[in-house]
Design a binder for these strands. Structure first.
Length: 212
DNA sequence: ATCCCGAGGG
DNA sequence: CCCTCTGGAT
């Protein structure tokens, strides 16, 4: 994809997604961190179901620690990887209390030091909570970056570096959400809906398998 | 490279 | 049945 196509790609995605936002439900930075931690290899719909049960009972580090691993598991059992996630969420909450005054830290280093929080989760918190121009490469963005030719790479980190270099500066804060929504609803993994795609004209993918 | 791991869709 | 879902730790 050349630079003209890249520009057109993002302008079109912007127009198609006037209200870019996460579809995870949260009402505080800690809830955001918890929801993103729970979202690994799980759908937003599934995570929201679990957090609607969990957050009314425990939505602060102190309450999560008090609930304990077994207690948290009881609320999130319907999500994949629930044992690891319950253990990580409780351990993360304990570290917030012990080392960060019960607050969610703002640096990448401190975020990635939390159990269950890697580069992708840290990027989401940095972007959504504090408006930093990060690009969290999840399964959707990895696929869209490669399939379209916008940011091909073997690893999420490679895709992220290319995106940071190619996303026009004025779109840096919102591009992450546009790409997620595009991947979720249009550039789908199994059956990409190329016929309904607004950016098909500047995409490298050969739409032989489109069945939309 | 492998494990974790349930719900939903095709 | 199979694949996919806002990954991270070992």
């Amino acid at each position: 994809m050349n630079s003209d196509a890249i520009k057109r790609f993002f302008v079109t995605l912007r127009d198609a997604n006037p209200q870019p936002a996460s579809e995870l439900e949260y009402s505080s930075v800690f809830e955001l961190l918890a929801a993103v931690l729970l979202s690994a290899q799980a759908t937003d719909v599934g995570v929201n179901k679990a957090t609607r049960r969990l957050f009314p009972v425990a939505n602060t580090p102190a309450k999560i620690v008090a609930l304990g691993v077994e207690g948290v598991e009881a609320y999130i059992r319907t999500i994949g990887l629930f044992r690891n996630k319950a253990k990580n969420l409780v351990a993360t909450a304990q570290i917030l209390l012990d080392q960060h005054g019960g607050q969610v830290p703002r640096s990448r280093e401190a975020l990635e030091a939390l159990p269950g929080v890697g580069r992708k989760t840290a990027n989401v918190v940095l972007n959504v909570a504090w408006g930093e121009p990060t690009c969290a490469v999840d399964t959707h963005i990895f696929r869209v970056g490669n399939r379209t030719g916008l940011a091909p790479g073997r690893t999420p980190y490679e895709v992220e570096m290319k995106l940071l270099a190619r996303i026009p500066a004025e779109f840096a804060k919102d591009a992450h959400h546009w790409l997620i929504l595009h991947g979720r609803y249009v550039c789908q993994a199994r059956k990409p809906r190329c016929r309904a795609c607004a950016v098909a004209d500047c995409c490298d993918f050969d739409a032989k398998t489109d069945q939309a």
